[in-house]
Nucleic acid binder design. Structure first.
Lengths: 213, 213
DNA sequence: ATATTTTTCGACCGTCGGTCAAGTGCATTT
DNA sequence: AAATGCACTTGACCGACGGTCGAAAAATAT
């Protein structure tokens, strides 16, 4: 049973190795032996730290999200800052870690059927939405109480925004041109502003999100 | 090279076999030999009709969508029917084929990491959104011209609705309780009604979609 | 009847994810 | 100092899988 002592070293070594390999190959084409080799350890050791190959990927994605998740939770508590500012900060925090991590894949790997990336992207979607939803819901609720936002379903609103943002920014789930992505985001902003009765322009920071190339 | 003559017989036989197996197992646990056995043909023959295992799944999903897609395209042209009615019909058409096909998996298979289903679900999402978007956009555009809908981004609106509906109904992408799903859909309806300035209740048929258990 | 093409097939191959018994070093006990 | 126990490491090994192949059978043409 791995302790949380020096074992973390090897544990993260494995994660690092996978992350590196992910930059140049698809998961399906990365073998466990390969990960072991890159990490400089024996294949058997991998299974001392992880129960399966999938679990390594799970852990890597989870690790990639630790930081923005903490930020999100902190933001939810900062009631003195305007809800809109906090939302903007939250999305900002996400871009600096995880999304960059996803992006690497699309560009590098030869563009065979995007199918191979499905594992990665589904995990990504599931994670970001389910983990970020509570924090965003809280922020929205506070906005409603303040009278800044007018809407009856804060949790639903949070989920809708997260789903659209996530799906659209992860361009391999629904490959579109940058122009189309931009149109959808602008549409989302317009829909939100009209639907929640906030002043036009209040949510425009959302479209900045699309600039991550 | 398979002709499109009598070959279709075997071709569809293979697809049928996979569809049947999909009802009781996850794709990852279905071997090509198993498909062949179920179809009553030799394993080698599979590769006479399909280049790879993935291609079989692709073809099956595509086949599952032929019917609703036709319906959608027809609906887009039926300008004499109200846009709202046509939208309701469109979503109705989808439920009778593809969604049922997806649903089967979630219930039956033992709930190991949803990872295994990723292939299926990503394909599903990509397909339904990208194929249905043009038709739905067209319907919305007509609604805007009629003055029934007030919104500046018809394509974005179509995409947003499709993404949310698809992701939320495919409960294995973001597993939630039925109550939560319902809340999100109600929130979506409220957001749409307020955001597009249609009378409350006009879009309530969308939440019926969640009743497919 | 013969030649030619299309279709069928299962034995076979290389690879992969995962297991395991054997081993290595290190701290603690005796 | 020797023995014991324990956390950790390892690569040979296993069963299973996706995919290939050449040969045979079926269908078609001549």
């Amino acid at each position: 049973m791995p302790d949380t002592k020096k074992n973390e070293k090897k544990y993260h070594l494995i994660l690092d190795a996978l992350q590196l390999l992910l930059e140049e190959k698809k998961i399906q084409n990365i073998s466990v032996s390969e990960i072991a080799q890159k990490a400089g350890i024996g294949k058997g050791s991998i299974y001392y730290y992880f129960p399966s190959k999938d679990a390594i990927l799970d852990a890597l994605i989870e690790r990639s999200y630790e930081q923005p998740l903490l930020t999100a939770k902190n933001l939810a508590a900062q009631t003195e800052i305007s809800p809109f500012t906090r939302m903007a900060m939250l999305f900002q925090a996400c871009q600096n870690s995880s999304i960059a991590f996803i992006k690497q894949n699309d560009s590098s790997s030869d563009n065979t059927s995007a199918q191979d990336l499905a594992f990665l992207h589904q995990k990504y979607l599931t994670h970001v939405v389910s983990e970020l939803k509570p924090a965003l819901t809280e922020i929205i609720k506070q906005g409603i109480e303040n009278g800044d936002i007018h809407f009856d379903y804060p949790a639903a609103l949070a989920e809708i925004v997260l789903i659209i943002i996530t799906v659209k920014l992860d361009n391999s789930l629904l490959p579109t041109t940058p122009a189309e992505t931009d149109d959808t985001l602008r549409g989302l902003i317009s829909l939100l502003e009209k639907g929640t009765e906030v002043a036009p322009g209040t949510l425009s920071y959302l479209s900045l999100t699309s600039y991550i190339k």
